[in-house]
Simulated assay, not measured.
Amino acid sequence: MFVRAYLRASTSAQDANRARQTLNAFATQHHQKIASFYAENASGASPDRAELRRLLTDAHVGDVLLVESIDRLSRLPTDDWKRLRTEIDAKGLRVVALDLPTSHVAMQEALEDDFTARMLDAINAMMLDMMAAIARKDYEQRRERQAQGIEKAKTEGRYRGRPMDPELHQRVSELLNAGLSIRKVAQHAQCSTSTVQRVKRHEPLTPSGPQQEQDLSM
């Protein structure tokens, strides 16, 4: 059995590898070993995730796609989730999530009873769709609450925007001072170009810094 673990965190300030030890312990409990890890910092609401794409490209029939929870795999809207599910099914992958007990049977060798195996597959597929829908709903509710909070803060004159992570701010400043373009800085610091632009607006380059290369990201 070839187990492929997918780890995801939403922002560059978070540790995508945080759950690696937990997934390793889970695999060991089921007498399996994780053969490959795929970790990235990307939104679960986006279908375009490089490491998830790589996992799907590498996968073979019968492989296990192991995640800490379904929301690490998807916070996608319905149509995008259906497309991802179609890709997963076409690859013959079995999804196992720590927060989805019905999926844990996939960590075992194939069941001799074909009827039982098919019933478990059907139950797991239904539960997987349900958990993906819950993950998307949670994402939408959090975005809505965030927007309401920002609007209220703006009305009351308290809104100052999202605070910048100090370490990321320092890293971006150093890269800008080194003469890199906004796009290059974003790539090296693993953040968005808008974050780089925020730092650039509030932290001008030092006079002794080298001349910047032409910025093509604007």
Rank of each mutant, 00 (worst) to 15 (best):
L216F: 00
D79E: 11
I123R: 12
E40W: 13
P77S: 08
I123C: 06
R142Q: 12
G157M: 08
I70Q: 09
T11L: 13
H188Q: 02
Q29W: 04
K91F: 01
K82H: 11
A186E: 08
D121N: 09
Q170C: 05
S103K: 11
L76T: 07
A50W: 10
H104D: 06
R160M: 11
V172Y: 03
L100I: 03
Q108Y: 12
A125E: 08
T22S: 15
A19S: 14
T11W: 09
N24A: 10
N24T: 07
L84W: 13
R198P: 07
R142D: 06
R18M: 03
D113A: 13
M107A: 13
Q214M: 09
R20V: 08
D71L: 00
C191V: 09
L55K: 12
A97H: 11
M119S: 08
Y159T: 10
Y6I: 01
I34L: 00
A19E: 12
V96L: 02
S43F: 01
D79S: 15
I150E: 11
R142K: 14
E87F: 00
A122I: 08
A125P: 10
R75P: 00
L23K: 06
T155K: 15
M1H: 01
V67P: 04
D15V: 10
A122K: 12
P207E: 10
M107F: 14
F115L: 13
A19C: 01
R4P: 06
R160Y: 01
T28C: 06
K137C: 05
L93H: 02
R18D: 00
N177E: 14
D48Y: 06
D80H: 12
R162A: 14
A45V: 05
Q108V: 05
S181Y: 07
I134A: 07
Q21I: 08
R118F: 04
V172T: 06
A50N: 06
P210L: 05
A133H: 05
D165I: 02
A45G: 02
A13L: 13
D80V: 08
P101Y: 10
R8W: 07
